[in-house]
Write a protein that binds this DNA or RNA. Structure first.
Lengths: 336, 336
DNA sequence: CGGCACACCTACAACGTTTTCGTAAAACCA
DNA sequence: TGGTTTTACGAAAACGTTGTAGGTGTGCCG
């Protein structure tokens, strides 16, 4: 932190500090000629206003926080890409925090942000059985705008950006059944997320619509630990009552499934048909190519960020009950 | 930004603001009993120090910036993961900026950060013909510590974290040749990056060591635009003097290659053998499984962040000439 | 010519910390 | 006991902005 400040600029220009401040802020109180003088000198000295002084005085910052479970996941990476595309445009700075599905970490980040470091939050929650009290607590304490996306809590007071999980999972499941699947399973997270519950409902409804009886053992709870998942999948696919269709509601579950099938020499799609919820660019190149239900990740990030900034900038704008729903895209490839 | 501040705490405790500040800072000037009183009340009121006031006064912040070309790329996503793992640990906040291989954007970010918003930068440069004057300029103006990783400029004054590009590319190319390749090509970026040049040197040296004459047309310059790349690859693989070996020095080039081979019904590895530099988790599941030269991305991120924080915190610590080199890993699969 | 609006600019007090310097009382020492 | 050191605290000045309240001079109008 070197550089020149307003005081020095003012001195050199023979003006007061407030005049310089207003000139830089393009205030109507300042004459065009003075503005030009100020701007010119500021440029000449490569003057940059101190963001800390500014935020302190104005009691707000142009900074937002993004809290997500994982960045090594095409969905979240694309979402961050979308978020950054709008924050960049609106001249906001973007903090990133990764929770790695660790509730304690999520709470710690929230606690940290109670300092008022940022003017708003974009969150995709991590799995965890404890409910969402910490979000409400945070909001109580700070009144800062929050937008949830994809993995959203079932709290009415916050706006959300999601995709049509129910409908698209219904459609995907239907497709599995119509292609001959009788004993499908649904791979989901250990802890119930609102998102996964919607998908699960879609799965279940599709079965019912096709008169396939739904049983609880069709729901397979996977973990965040790839090794554990491996064992779970291996057990599932080694069993005698092996499923003949799999809907993987999380990107990495689909990958593990492929690995296990390859090892156990289970033929896809003959022995088992698979659809994965993923945004992997390599889905079409897998062996066999993976049918996907992909989310409009980039757009979801973009929508979330746009909404958040709207909330930050228009005090009046109450987006409390806003729920933006975007459409997933089903792409059937060789795996079905 | 609501919450309580030091002044109110001090008032309630019947102490001065400075005493409270020192107590919270665990200063030796304050008695144990007073410290306890202060800490207790601070906790009770959920007091959080205002980071802007603090940064303003101290003239430094616990914030760093990460500037990378792309986040939808397993390498960079993993690197960010590694970076975040250490910034989290050291209680730093991490800004993220994506340049999308756009030099203007890179310059704009740097210019923006001249405000002193962050205490240090971690950068992987974007391609561009203009050289690295903007980094030097930034450093001149701010004197802020910068660590480059992976895509590093050839500027001596900055520390870098890279992987053994020369050696590992040498090894990979050797492997291609030993498995029967006679006319290999090397897919690289349009603009010469230090990193790609190293890889290219390794490629060339390996050929020479095997008495295969190197010709300029073995170097294929790809773009950041996937559509353009597609055309380039299509042309390359449709030609009569089609290469029988490909080393893709960027993740997405390998993917495009697979797509084109699939379309042109070119058999991998019979017609053409491929090794890609990538950290894709799905490499083993591609059809056929892709041989990879993968970088220790997470570790590179971790090393870069550790080094940066060391530079920030120890004023004396001059890491100017530090170059940390980590090892890439060659994994041969069906594509060779 | 008095009154008033208006354009333009300045002084100064915030914003919430940290840090330097000062000092009263307690503790120590010869 | 008188002096010095140590301990524990406080007053006040930063840090660099922004916004409010005020002030001055000019032009305009009746």
């Amino acid at each position: 932190m070197k550089g020149i400040n307003m005081i020095q600029l003012a001195k050199e220009l023979g003006l007061s500090v407030s005049t310089v401040s207003k000139a830089l802020g393009d205030s109507y109180e300042i004459s065009a000629s003075t503005k030009k003088r100020v701007l010119d000198l500021a440029k000449q000295y490569n003057y940059k206003p101190n963001p800390f002084a500014s935020s302190l005085r104005k009691k707000k910052s142009k900074q937002i926080a993004v809290i997500i479970p994982d960045i090594v996941n095409n969905f979240f990476a694309l979402a961050v890409d979308g978020i950054e595309s709008v924050t960049m445009n609106k001249h906001y700075d973007t903090f990133i925090y990764l929770t790695h599905e660790n509730l304690e970490r999520e709470k710690a980040v929230l606690e940290h942000l109670e300092s008022g470091l940022t003017s708003g939050l974009i969150i995709s929650v991590c799995t965890g059985r404890e409910g969402y009290g910490h979000f409400q607590q945070f909001y109580e304490n700070t009144k800062l705008p929050i937008v949830f996306f994809d993995r959203v809590p079932d709290l009415l007071q916050f706006p959300k950006v999601i995709s049509n999980n129910y409908d698209s999972t219904f459609e995907a499941t239907l497709r599995l059944v119509k292609s001959g699947v009788n004993r499908p399973v649904f791979l989901t997270t250990e802890e119930p997320l609102y998102t996964s519950i919607e998908r699960r409902r879609g799965f279940q409804a599709a079965l019912t619509s096709q008169h396939i009886p739904f049983t609880d053992d069709m729901i397979i709870e996977c973990s965040d630990d790839m090794d554990k998942n491996y064992l779970i999948m291996r057990k599932l696919l080694s069993g005698k009552k092996r499923p003949d269709g799999i809907f993987a509601s999380i990107e990495k579950y689909a990958i593990t499934t492929y690995q296990v099938c390859k090892e156990l020499k289970i033929n896809i799609p003959r022995d088992v048909k698979i659809i994965g919820m993923t945004n992997l660019r390599t889905a079409a190149l897998l062996n066999p190519s993976l049918s996907t239900l992909s989310q409009p990740s980039f757009e979801m990030g973009r929508e979330a960020a746009s909404l958040l900034i709207k909330m930050i900038e228009k005090k009046s704008y109450s987006a409390a009950n806003d729920i933006i729903v975007l459409n997933n895209e089903l792409t059937i490839r060789e795996s079905v």
